[in-house]
């Protein structure tokens, strides 16, 4: 906890008091001395009211922060003391390298003893990223002359997700149960396609075959893209990159909901690593991508190994960097049997 005393209004009052007393001594005017004493009384009372105030318990809750989406932040202030509280100003902001969430400030009038106040404020994050949540409580003394401020830090990092976007449909591999898809229970059919070598004869749908004149099989397995790998290259703040990142995040979210194994290259201070994205942590690389550079050859190989043969590698990069990136990734992916998909092609 960090204690700060705001100085601007206080300093002005102190200077005025000293100046009045000096003037009174110079001119021996009783009215100047009375004015100085009056100001002294006001400042002293302002100090007393805030120094003897035991303060209130402040709680903070906020919803998920998504860029461009209003998020509600709920402040609860409880006065557990036996006296009416002082007016409060509670501020909440996220400290990070870039402004992510605008500072939100709420004002709370004095609360009766034992009372509680709940204030909801709406804030719209402006950029995705991760930062440290901080909030401060300012207690305002009588006449507003003295203010005491306490600053606290939230225990968890605050993440701002990329803006909501439409997910893109990744190319599917399809196939019968046991390969890349999710075998559904029951008689659900996801579509019909032409017979391919490897398909069982019993899966041929003869009616469709007779109608179309070509061997047709019904897909009873939800086509899924297989294992999905995500490679993000770009610099945060670039508008097109942010849009692509939002789309990729939405796509990965859908994929993880469907049970697809997702891996991503995560930039770290030590160089980077491959992380598996689960339903609870799929957002991490999309939030933390600040200045994602090309992965090293070893890192790329590591990622492709996780994706595995038949999987899909999703490249998230702005068109300017794609040619260079594709050149780096294409050979390695072909060798690993991984299909490379550029997100710009799908949007």
């Amino acid at each position: 906890m960090k204690l700060q005393r705001l100085g601007s209004r206080n300093q002005l009052a102190y200077v005025a008091i000293v100046g009045l007393f000096v003037l009174a001594a110079q001119t021996r005017s009783v009215w100047l001395q009375a004015a100085a004493c009056a100001l002294t009384g006001l400042v002293a009372v302002s100090w007393l009211t805030v120094a003897f105030d035991k303060g209130c318990r402040v709680g903070l809750q906020h919803g998920e922060f998504v860029v461009g989406a209003p998020a509600q932040t709920c402040f609860t202030v409880e006065n557990a003391s036996s006296r009416r509280s002082r007016p409060l100003v509670v501020r909440y902001w996220v400290e990070s390298a870039r402004p992510l969430v605008p500072e939100v400030a709420v004002y709370v009038d004095p609360i009766a003893a034992g009372g509680r106040a709940e204030v909801r404020a709406t804030v719209e994050p402006v950029a995705r990223g991760e930062g440290e949540g901080r909030w401060s409580v300012e207690r305002i003394g009588a006449f507003g002359l003295v203010t005491l401020r306490h600053t606290r830090t939230t225990k968890e990092q605050v993440a701002v997700a990329p803006a909501s976007a439409r997910p893109v449909e990744l190319p599917t591999h399809g196939g019968t149960a046991g390969t890349h898809g999710r075998v559904t229970a029951g008689l659900e059919v996801f579509g019909a396609r032409e017979w391919r070598p490897g398909d069982a004869v019993r899966h041929v749908h003869w009616r469709s075959t007779a109608r179309s004149g070509r061997l047709t099989v019904l897909e009873r397995v939800e086509p899924v893209p297989g294992v999905l790998g995500v490679l993000i290259v770009g610099t945060a703040g670039h508008q097109q990159f942010e849009e692509l990142l939002a789309t990729a995040a939405a796509t990965v979210e859908v994929a993880t909901d469907k049970g697809v194994d997702c891996y991503a290259w995560l930039e770290q201070s030590s160089g980077g690593c491959v992380g598996q994205l689960s339903r609870g942590s799929w957002l991490v690389p999309f939030v933390r991508a600040e200045k994602a550079a090309f992965p090293s050859e070893r890192g790329l190989t590591h990622l492709l190994a996780h994706v595995g043969r038949g999987g899909t590698l999703l490249l998230v990069a702005v068109p300017d960097t794609l040619p260079a990136l594709h050149a780096v990734v294409a050979d390695a992916s072909a060798a690993a049997g991984v299909t490379v998909v550029e997100l710009t092609d799908l949007t």
Binding site: S46, T49, V104, Y107, D109, T122
Partner: peptide
Amino acid sequence: ADAVAAGSAATIVRSSVGPVATAVGIA
């Protein structure tokens, strides 16, 4: 402020009577 939990101004005025009287006494 972005949001307020404010009562009536009369409450603020009433709660200022004590501090004003104290300030006069201190002065």
